[in-house]
Nucleic acid binder design. Sequence first.
DNA 1: AATAAATACTACAAAAAGGTAGTAATATAT
DNA 2: ATATATTACTACCTTTTTGTAGTATTTATT
Lengths: 141, 141
Amino acid sequence: MIRNKTTEYALTILGFMASRNEDMYSAEYLHKQLNIPRRYLRRLLTDLSKHGFLKSTSGRNGGFVFAKDLEEINLALVINTLEGYETLCTCILGFSCCIVDKPCIMHDTWMEARSKMFEVLSNTTLADLKEKYQMDLIKKL
Amino acid sequence: MIRNKTTEYALTILGFMASRNEDMYSAEYLHKQLNIPRRYLRRLLTDLSKHGFLKSTSGRNGGFVFAKDLEEINLALVINTLEGYETLCTCILGFSCCIVDKPCIMHDTWMEARSKMFEVLSNTTLADLKEKYQMDLIKKL
DNA sequence: AATAAATACTACAAAAAGGTAGTAATATAT
DNA sequence: ATATATTACTACCTTTTTGTAGTATTTATT
Ligand code: FES
Ligand code: FES
């Protein structure tokens, strides 16, 4: 579940973009807002484009926008796309056979906890984040 | 939550040891049973000893035994010891301020899911694993 | 047409994680 | 005493992840 920094960055970026209303986000702008290393961020952004989350336009005034509706992007999807499906379903005791073969001693307990986690992740779309952010703003008034 | 292989290995080892009744486990034996790379396993075992989970005796017929009661070792403790407390409580959106500073949009939702996870991990001790394993055996008869 | 502000591509560098090798130390068995 | 089976220590190698650099390409502005 979020095994590396890259995935974390991706969620940071997408979450941030979702909760704002700019119509275009340049790498430079995101870098300044989010403090993710410039060059790494750029690469990640084109990666996210290749994976179909974002759409890029190059040239002056270019940048990134979402390629899909915010409702269509949930957090589990992002994680899975970036680090592979397995990370969300590996055996807690480190055996390779989770699900497929004989389940380990912890399997049932672990599966239950994990699927709650997964539920949260897959039920939270970027649209939800935007909504929550809006509510946050209202509360702060 | 289990960010690296080493932690996974540790859980594999401790879980395995807990569910058996040998009075001593040599690195070589564990290697053969669990297929964890020999040398790496050795190092991890002495690490686990240094962290107070195991007790080692060297020399012929030496090996590793638990240094504490099985009831005293829960899975969250193992994870925390090996990869630091933070991994169980970092911000889902990748902001550094989880808990301490201003919580992010996802904070409440995420905290809830995560604490369920944590509950499972910290409520499962090695003694429980042993018990479950025993039950497994009975069921299989 | 020239400039400037952006992304895209490719290759490399640095750091962290995972894994290996050699040798020393320890203790039991013979 | 010696041989054997074990852990301990230290240094190194490999792979993966993270981060950087250089150059090319695209496009709006002037
Ligand atoms: S087999 Fe271990 S958690 Fe599924
Ligand atoms: S601040 Fe983001 S989950 Fe706590």
